[in-house]
Amino acid sequence: MAVNGIPRTASVEDRRTLAEFLREQCGLTGTHLGCEHGVCGACTVLLDGGAVRSCLLFAAQLQDAEVTTIEGLSAEDGSLSPVQQAFADHHGLQCGFCTPGFVVSVTAFLSSNPAPTDGEIAHALSGNLCRCTGYQGIIAAVKAVAGR
């Protein structure tokens, strides 16, 4: 598979999840594990452009796939993507643990729906859990990127 544009070839144990593969074998620790049962969304990554939960996928399923993690969303010089910058500008994070999952989910959501309604934003975000912010800054950040 390709991870953040870099080809990766590895042989993995059949039960190894994509999240474990990314964290332990690729050293990409920005993908976080918050529940390991597919609810919290902290482990969200892009798989061929769509948001998926890396705790629910086995690495071995992903032959030839293109995976993008949080580390792959910012520019090489470290400058933030528009979604990342909006989270910073609107205090869309506190402890930061859920943040990579939110940023990845929002990136995928806005690329498929660049002009969402309030209801669509709330619905899109409801697959990710945050315990610090009460979602206030996150919602504001999404609206800002959507030009609202």
Binding site: R23, L28, T29, G30, T31, H32, L33, T69, I70, E71, L73, S74, G78, L80, Q84, F87, A88, D89, H91, L93, G96, F97, T99, P100, V103
Partner: peptide, 19 residues
């Protein structure tokens, strides 16, 4: 003012205990 913590946390460069 924007937070000093945010650039590392937003780009997956935080360091939590599991890292």
């Amino acid at each position: 003012i924007n937070r000093k913590e945010d650039p590392r946390l937003l780009t997956g460069r935080g360091r939590y205990v599991d890292d």
